[in-house]
Amino acid sequence: PAHPYDRLKTTSTDPVSDIDVTRREAYLSSEEFKEKFGMTKEAFYKLPKWKQNKFKMAVQLF
């Protein structure tokens, strides 16, 4: 299930529990994912792991 970005980011005051914290981005809706990352999930997962992590750090999901 998708969760709002505000509850997934590492600085959230009301974090979602029971998620894989190493894959926070996977819980974003497709729309919100595209808004935050500027690309689709499919394109994101084709990137090298280090680049994925760099993007995730930039949007507080790492």
Rank of each mutant, 00 (worst) to 15 (best):
A2D: 11
R24K: 06
K51Y: 11
S17K: 14
A43C: 13
K9G: 11
L47P: 00
Q52T: 00
K36A: 10
L47E: 05
D18V: 05
V59N: 10
F37L: 09
K51T: 12
L8W: 05
S12F: 04
D14S: 07
L47Y: 09
S12W: 04
S30D: 15
P48C: 05
V16M: 03
S30A: 14
L28N: 03
T10C: 14
V21L: 06
E25G: 02
R7S: 15
L8S: 02
T13L: 14
Q52G: 00
K41L: 07
P1K: 15
N53S: 08
E32A: 04
R23I: 12
L61P: 05
V16C: 11
F33H: 01
E32F: 06
E32H: 04
D6M: 00
S12L: 01
K56C: 08
Q52Y: 01
S30W: 10
F44H: 00
Y45M: 03
R24Y: 09
E42Q: 09
A26V: 11
S12K: 02
A2F: 15
T10F: 09
P4T: 12
F55I: 13
K41F: 08
F37C: 12
D6N: 01
V21H: 09
E42F: 07
S29Q: 03
M39A: 01
L47M: 10
P15A: 04
P4H: 06
K56F: 07
K9Y: 11
E42V: 11
P4R: 05
V59G: 01
R23W: 08
L28F: 13
L61W: 08
H3Y: 15
Q60D: 15
F55Q: 06
T40D: 13
S29N: 10
L8F: 06
L61M: 07
R24H: 08
Y45S: 09
K51M: 14
P4S: 11
W50I: 04
E31G: 08
Y45L: 04
E25L: 04
E32V: 11
L8P: 08
F33D: 01
K56H: 06
V16K: 02
E35Y: 07
P4Y: 08
A58L: 14
R7C: 15
K36M: 12
E25S: 04
Y45P: 00
A2L: 15
D18P: 09
P4E: 10
T22L: 06
T11C: 15
D6S: 00
D6V: 00
G38A: 07
V59T: 07
L61D: 03
K49Q: 10
R7G: 10
T10S: 04
T13R: 08
G38N: 09
D18Q: 04
V16N: 08
I19F: 07
S12A: 14
F62L: 13
R7N: 10
W50D: 08
K46I: 12
V21I: 13
T22I: 06
T11V: 03
L28Y: 03
P1Y: 13
D18I: 03
A26I: 10
G38P: 01
F44N: 00
L8T: 03
A43L: 13
K56D: 02
I19N: 04
Q60A: 11
F44T: 00
K34E: 15
F55N: 02
N53Y: 08
F44A: 01
D18T: 06
K46A: 12
M39I: 05
Q60G: 12
